[in-house]
């Protein structure tokens, strides 16, 4: 019997925008190396832009390739609105806005 690995929870800050994506990108690369499910907690995020959402999408794709669970959770209304504006709700919020691993 294999035991399911404990997920890594990433708490994103209040702003997740272009000026922070380079740092986040490096952090996400390190997280991926751990080969564990990823939970992105967006409860603090009030402001996100296209660059931030696209990076989340790439992380999601990386998790899919490695067959790791990927969940975005506690999404705040302004972020839901931005995700919908970009037409990404179907992919990024497929587990619902409070999805669990």
């Amino acid at each position: 019997m294999t035991r399911k690995k404990k997920p890594i929870v990433v708490n994103l800050p209040d702003e997740f925008q272009i000026h922070a994506v380079n740092d986040r990108f490096q952090e996400f690369l390190q997280i991926l190396e751990e080969e564990r499910p990823v939970v992105i907690d967006m409860s603090l995020v009030n402001s996100v832009d296209y660059a931030g959402l696209q990076l989340l999408y790439s992380l999601m794709r990386s998790c899919e390739e490695k067959e790791l669970d990927f969940i975005i959770t506690n999404v705040t209304p302004p972020v839901i609105q931005k995700i919908a504006l970009c037409g990404l709700s179907g992919d990024l919020l497929k587990e619902g806005i409070n999805g669990s691993v």
Partner: peptide, 10 residues
Amino acid sequence: IPSLSGYNPE
């Protein structure tokens, strides 16, 4: 959109 290994954040 590539996975992170081929991704450029900018």
